[in-house]
Every structure is written in C-alpha cells, then in structure tokens.
Design a protein around this nucleic acid. Structure first.
Length: 776
DNA sequence: ATAGAATTGGTGGTATCAAG
DNA sequence: CTTGATACCACCAATTCTAT
C-alpha cells in the first residue's frame, strides 16, 4: 500500500522544519514554472517557501531585482502605505484641471452662466457623478488595502521599506499592537462588565491575533526589542514576504480545483473524473518524485484508457489523487467546517473590513468608550465631518470606526469650502480612522454636512486655481441630525439604540398583528418615529425619503393595498386637495411608484430569463433523441438567417460541438432547407459517433422531412424554398456531409487509426470544450 | 438565540458579437 | 463560416440582516 502523497509531503515539510533551514529552497520556488504563468500551485509549495533559508544579501540594490526582491519591495510598500498615496491621488483628481478637461468640462468662467440652462445642468451632473465615482473608488481601495498597513503579519514587511523612518514606524506600530493586545487580555481577564464584553467583541473582530503566524511575528519583534535592523526580525519578514503573496490564492486555487473535480464526479462523468484527478495530481510539481506521474497530454489520456481496456496495470501509469486519509488531531478542534469557523472566524470581505476597523480601534481608542462606538454609524461614505477645527471626508463606517481623509478649509466671501491638502512626498503613510461615541443630537461634538463638488466653471473668483472644491449643501449640523436628514442607512438594532438614546420611545408598530392585538414594531417604524421627532416640519414626502434611507427599504414601506390607491384616485379633485387627504395622496403616490418599480423589476427578470432562441417545437422532431437528449438543440435565427445546432459530444476531449449554417448568404446562397440540412446531418453524425448502442438509422429525418419543417417557417422569413428534389429520400447533391454520416465508428473507443484524436471521422468543431478540459 | 429572508460573489453554461 | 472573446443568466453557497 503506497502512502498518500499528501501525507508524504507533510512529513517532508516537518522534517525540513525540524532540521533547521539549512538548504535554501527559495531558489526552487522562484524558478518553478508554476509561479507567474500559472498560480495553480500546491498549497504546500508556498509553505515550502516559508521554511527556506533567507538570504538577506539577495535583497540589494544593483542588478535587476529578483522575484523575491520585487515581491518583498511590493509588500513593504503596502505596509508603509503606498496604497494610500494612490487613494489620495484619486481624490485629488477633484482639483485636477486635466481631469476636468478630459471630461470635457468647461473651464472657469468670469461671468457665470445661468444654472437652468440644459448644458450647464448636464455638465454639473457629470462633474457630480465623477466625484461620486472617485469617492467610491477611494473608499473601496482604502477598505481593501488598509489591512496591509495595520494588521500583522502584513505590517512586518515594513522592515524592508526604503526609508529607515518607515521601517522604524512599522516596528513601533507592531510594538503598540503587542502592548494593546496584552492590555486587552489583562482587562478581559480582570473585568466582567460592558466594557469587557465590547473588548472581547473587538478582539473577535480583529481576528488576526488568533493566528499562529501573527503571534510568532510579534514575539520575534518583542524579543528583538522592536529594532527594525535585528537579524531575526528581518529574517522573519523575509520568509513571510519574499515570495508571491499567494498562499491564499494557492489554497483557493487548489480547493476550487478539487471542488471542480468533485462536481464532475457528482455528475457521473467517470471518465473525466479520473482524468481530472490524474491531471490534478500530476500538475503539481511539488508532488513529483515519490509518485509516478502521467503526462497531461491527450495522447496520454488515450494510452491510459487503452491500458484500462486491456486490463494492464494502471498503477504504473498514474499518480494518486488526494483524499483525507489522516485525521487532524482532535485537540485542534478543526474536524469540520463548523468547528473551523468557531475556532477561527468568519471569512469574507466584510470580515476583513471589520478586522481593519477593530485593529485601528484597538490601537488608538481607550477601552471605556468601546461600548459606545456603534454611534459611528452616522459617518456615511462621502460626507464631510468636523470636530473642533479638524475636517475630514469619510470613507465609510465598519462596526467600530470610519476611515477618513483630512481636508483643509478654504474661506471666500463668507463661504466655506473644503479641499484636499497638497500632496507631499511621504516615506510612510497611515490611514486615518475616526470614531464617535455619542449618539445624542444635543451633545455630540461631531458635525456633518453633505457636500457637492463645485463645477470648475462656477468657482468663485480667486479660487479658480483649485479647479474645484467641495461645498456643503447645507451648513454643518450635529452628526446624528445630519445622518437622519440625509437618510444614512443603519442596521435595525442601531436605529433602535439611536431612538432610545435620544428619548424617542413612542413608536407605533405597523407589522403583523400579534396575539396581544398590537402590531409588531418594524425597522421602518423606528425610522419613522425618529424622523417625525426630529423633522416635524418636513413634508410627508421628505419624511418618507428620510425613512426610506434610514431603513433601506426598497419595497413600499407600508402595506398600501391597491384598493386604497384606487379609492383615492376615484375621489374628485376637490377632495383630493382637502387637507386631511393630502398625506394620503403623497403616500398613495409613493406606494404606487414603488409598486410599479417592483412589478417592472419582476417583468424585466421574466423577459430576460426566457430563452428566445431555444429549439422551436417544429425542429424538435429533427433532433437525435427528438428532444429527449439534453443539451442537444437547434437554434433558428430568422434575422441572421442562420441555424446553429449543438450536440453534447460525450468524449470530453472534444467538448460539445456546434454547427452553424446560413441561408441566403452571400457566398453560398443556400436555401433554408439546405442550411438546416447541413446542421441536422452534422448533429446526427455526432450522434452516431457518440452513442454506442445500435441506433436505428432510419430515425434520421429525410431531406423531405426537413423541407416540410422549413416550409412551415417560410411565411416568417419571406424566403421561399424550392420544393424538395424529386429523389424522395435520397440526399440532394448539395448534401454537405455524406462522409460524416457514413461508416459509424464504435462509440467509447478511440478512432481506430491510433491514439491521436486526429484520425478517423470525428466532430470537426472542437471549440471551447476542448480547451476547458485541458486546462481545468 | 435562531429561523428565514436578502444579498453577494462565484461558477458553469448559453447567447451574442466581431475579426479574420 | 470559424473561432475566440465576452456579456448574460441561472444556480449555488456563504454571509449578513431582520424579525421573532
């Protein structure tokens, strides 16, 4: 019994770890053909890299950088905030004359045009849309990249940053994280209160400190007293980052591939199943050696199938595929996916962002305010916020904190504008985070305003050198008030908290009728109560807009039965204007609009999901299997004047086949019958080739059959076919494929001329199917 | 706490387009 | 007409959100 390659590999790696890193394996990894061109590398490959001896001297100036060096530089750049430079450059396009002119914006005008002119409105609209896009891009990049500058072990790459200052900064950051983690652990141990609970949740969200590698990295730093030039610190960082940062991708790739194999297996395509497993085992270079490998060529596939037929020993031909023969130690509590999730944490983009925000919070914020940080949910992406003299653009809130970009204020003629400070060269950048722990509108120190970019041509005289500035739509007002005014979405729980902290408790339910006879309180009810308490003077439509934003409800927020809408519309105009009906009017209009949107959306989906070019029922009798064969069909395109037939060629080497024919075309000018005949004959040719058991050849439709079908269509195309040729069942002279329908090869057997797929009658069209089966 | 709804991201397969 | 590229759609699984 041979041992599984996986097991063998594990042992190999273990041995390597134990015997100390004497032999450099890094070279091997960088020269492997797997990297670069194809990232489908065995996961152990990457682990291998980590255990190798580092050669610090290889990271040197001079000759062309090695793969390791460029990867290391890249990781170091990310750790010291290179991505933030990109974010700032993106946002700075607001002040870029070139950007404005690229968008065909009119330049600064000393005499302002009328705002209501169509071209002005159009340009202003474009400029505002461009700004929104810039904010989206900036926020997306910030939240996806900040992890490299904040979380361990990513930050440790910073000791290879270009400047000493940046290197020092990364070590200081890790030192702080280390200290804060210890303080947090102490606090949780000694306290059992609200703060302790919040801190536990924060640590859960941080997540990275639960990993062995992060703790090890910090421990190495601590032992080195956080000196960036310590040999061990640099060695650790080198091992982690001097290689393609693709452990994640390698794992995903490997598992995605396994998943694919499993899918195929479940479909019962046994030939492909085995083939794919062999391919998988042999595609991984790191498995070479202990296992007999097969070549991943089509020839080899045929040979293995031949040997299977001839009952020769296959074990000498192929490797073994993976299966979990070794159970993980029980103490790890990782025996199931559920256990993994419990032990480690949830994965995904949301979780990553939470981790970033939690780490930033752990770093800067005092523990006592942790239970109140949910109040940061007012920081909506793209708004301008201010505390004391400092102003920021927010990039969105994630559970604990919001990312923010510092702004400077520009005064002119008593008006206040906001601008991004001039870009300066920096060796090190850190993302900025802001928090709010006060949800009360009366005491909250933060102020917020919605802003719009001023169009370059509309800039005040004397400010045109800025190209464009951000201008508050309304004066800054307390953060909670502004958030409600602009309908900043928040989860239901937080909305409730906001209401309670601000004394809004009179909430009428509008949900289902409960046993008590009262209606249950929904999210919208809280939103409506808050809006009515804070904006009693606003019109109902305005209030409903705020409510819709706060609760994020897309459907009609209240059940407004059709009858009520109809009743209202049946009222005579005088009554419709009556004071006590005006509210109803707005509501009916809103509900109707929403209803229409919902129903229109439904229709849309229906229309798109219908298959327009599926086999028309008239063509079904012409198909092999008469419609019972899956993925075998003919499309008819009256506009393109084409037929296209598809047949699921079962031999996976060929994928599925398709045959296309045009009638009334320029080159051949076929009749419609001739075109359809070509397609039908090809389908049957594939059918004979594929199906092993005896097929009654008489089932194949005659030319006359085909013509009859086409004649049924002709009224739609306007192109009349000639009557069928007199030779009744005989093939016409234009029959395109007399050979293909000729001597039938036995199915499930390679063409007799040999193992190459070229010989013998075979489907001509290979198409994408072949490629996929060869590369998957 | 938890069931169920909604949302999101990924995958395989089909439909369509366009270059040669 | 072949071929490759890509848009689009249905479906699945993971995750988040809401309501109870």
């Amino acid at each position: 019994m041979t041992r599984s390659p996986l097991k063998r590999l594990r042992r190999k790696n273990k041995r390597k770890l134990r015997t100390g890193r004497r032999r450099s394996t890094l070279k091997q990894s960088s020269s492997g053909t797997s990297f670069g061109k194809n990232t489908r590398t065995c996961i152990w490959w990457t682990c291998y890299t980590v255990t190798g001896t580092c050669s610090l001297s290889s990271v040197s100036a001079g000759s062309a950088p090695s793969l390791q060096e460029s990867c290391l530089r890249w990781a170091a750049g990310l750790a010291s905030g290179s991505w933030l430079t990109t974010v700032l450059q993106t946002l700075h396009l607001l002040h870029s004359a070139k950007f404005a002119s690229d968008l065909n914006m009119t330049g600064w005008l000393p005499v302002k045009p009328q705002l209501d002119e169509p071209w002005v409105q159009e340009e202003v609209q474009i400029w505002e849309t461009a700004w929104k896009l810039l904010v989206e891009i900036a926020a997306a990049r910030s939240w996806s990249q900040a992890t490299y500058s904040l979380c361990v072990p990513h930050v440790s790459a910073g000791v290879f940053a270009k400047s000493v200052r940046a290197r020092e900064f990364c070590m200081v950051l890790q030192k702080k994280l280390w200290e804060r983690l210890h303080a947090a652990a102490q606090f949780v141990k000694n306290n059992d209160d609200e703060i302790s609970a919040a801190l536990t949740a924060l640590l859960d969200d941080c997540w990275w400190q639960k990993t062995q590698i992060a703790l090890e990295t910090l421990a190495v730093g601590q032992q080195a007293e956080w000196r960036h030039n310590n040999v061990e610190v640099r060695r650790e960082a080198f091992r982690l980052h001097a290689g393609p940062g693709n452990t994640k991708f390698s794992c995903e790739d490997a598992f995605a591939h396994l998943h694919h194999v499993v899918q195929k297996a479940n479909k019962g395509v046994h030939k492909l199943n085995k083939w794919a497993r062999w391919f998988y085992a042999s595609a991984s270079k790191s498995l070479a050696g202990p296992v007999n490998m097969v070549e991943t060529s089509v020839d080899d596939y045929y040979v293995t199938r031949q040997s299977a037929k001839m009952n020769t020993a296959r074990s000498s031909r192929h490797g073994q595929y993976f299966s979990p023969r070794v159970e993980l130690p029980k103490s790890l509590q990782l025996s199931s996916l559920v256990a993994v999730k419990k032990q480690w944490g949830t994965a995904g983009t949301e979780a990553d962002m939470r981790s970033i925000a939690a780490t930033a919070t752990l770093l800067r914020v005092d523990f006592p305010s942790l239970p109140h940080l949910w109040a940061g949910c007012f920081f909506a992406k793209g708004f301008v916020v201010q505390i004391e003299a400092q102003t920021y653009l927010t990039l969105g809130f994630r559970t604990w904190a919001s990312q923010a970009i510092k702004l400077e204020t520009v005064q002119c003629n008593g008006q206040e504008f906001f601008a991004f400070p001039a870009m300066e060269e920096r060796e090190h950048r850190m993302p900025h985070f802001i928090v709010n722990d006060d949800p009360k509108k009366t005491t909250c120190k933060w102020k917020m305003a919605k802003v719009a970019p001023v169009h370059p041509m509309m800039m005040e005289e004397g400010l045109q050198q800025h190209v464009s500035l951000l201008k508050p739509v309304m004066p800054l007002e307390p953060l909670p008030v502004a958030a409600v005014r602009w309908g900043v979405w928040m989860p239901a729980k937080l909305l409730q908290k906001v209401c309670k902290h601000n004394g809004v408790t009179a909430v009428t339910g509008s949900g289902k009728v409960l046993k008590s006879g009262r209606r249950s309180v929904l999210k919208v009810d809280w939103a409506r109560a808050l809006v009515q308490a804070w904006f009693p003077a606003a019109s109902l439509a305005e209030q409903e807009e705020m409510v819709a934003g706060l609760s994020g409800v897309k459907k009609p927020s209240m059940e407004c039965p059709e009858e009520i809408i109809e009743c209202f519309q049946d009222l005579d105009p005088a009554n419709q204007q009556a004071g006590y009906f005006i509210g109803l009017k707005d509501m009916a209009a809103t509900a109707q609009k929403a209803n229409q949107q919902v129903s229109a959306r439904g229709d849309d989906i229906d229309v798109r999901s219908s298959k327009k070019h599926y086999t028309p029922k008239e063509l079904i009798p012409l198909l092999p299997g008469k419609g019972s064969l899956e993925r075998c069909f003919i499309q008819r395109h009256p506009v393109n004047k084409t037929y296209q037939g598809f047949y699921p060629v079962q031999d996976t080497t060929y994928g599925s086949g398709s045959k296309h024919a045009t009638w009334a075309g320029k080159r051949e000018n076929l009749t419609e019958t001739q075109a359809l005949t070509r397609v039908v004959r090809q389908l049957w040719a594939w059918h004979y080739f594929t199906v092993d058991d005896a097929v009654n050849k008489d089932m194949e439709p005659t030319d006359a059959d085909i013509h009859r079908v086409v004649a049924g269509f002709s009224e739609f195309t306007g192109i009349r076919d000639q009557p069928a040729e007199s030779g009744s069942g005989a093939r016409s002279s234009t029959d395109p494929l007399p050979k293909a329908a000729g001597p039938k090869p036995k199915a499930g057997q390679p063409p007799k001329a040999g193992p190459t797929p070229k010989a013998g009658p075979k489907p001509k069209s290979v198409g994408r199917g072949k490629k996929r089966s060869a590369t998957s």
